[in-house]
Amino acid sequence: MTPAPRDTRRLVPAYLATSGRARPSRNTLDRLSVLHGATRGPVSGVSPQEARLLELLRPGALSLAEAAAHLRLPVSVVKVLVAELVDAGHLQVRAPIPDAELPERQILEKVLDGLRTLKSS
């Protein structure tokens, strides 16, 4: 599902999600931070947008930027939500995977070659 096209005017503004706050309680969050829910099942006592975020993470982990895109909120606002949920213990954050640990290009190319061989056979 692609988000609503840009030319439709938003009805609900982003500041409503955090009552206008955009400074998270922790500054370790990044666009690529990986989020996953710490609890399964419905969590009570959270705002609708926090509930929606937790629900979004129930099937599996997502990066913060992806979560923001799904919620159709700016990243800066989602960071505040995430920081609060982490403080409340509903959410866990993992640092983004550093570039150095990604598989090397040659290995990926070899895998691609192998796949092409399989396909043509």
Partner: peptide, 21 residues
């Protein structure tokens, strides 16, 4: 709204939210 999506700096973002309101 475009600026809110563009700027990650928390101080700028907060001002943008205030301006939006």
């Amino acid at each position: 709204q475009t600026m809110q999506e563009k700027h990650d700096d928390p101080f700028i973002a907060e001002d943008l939210l205030a301006a939006d309101f």
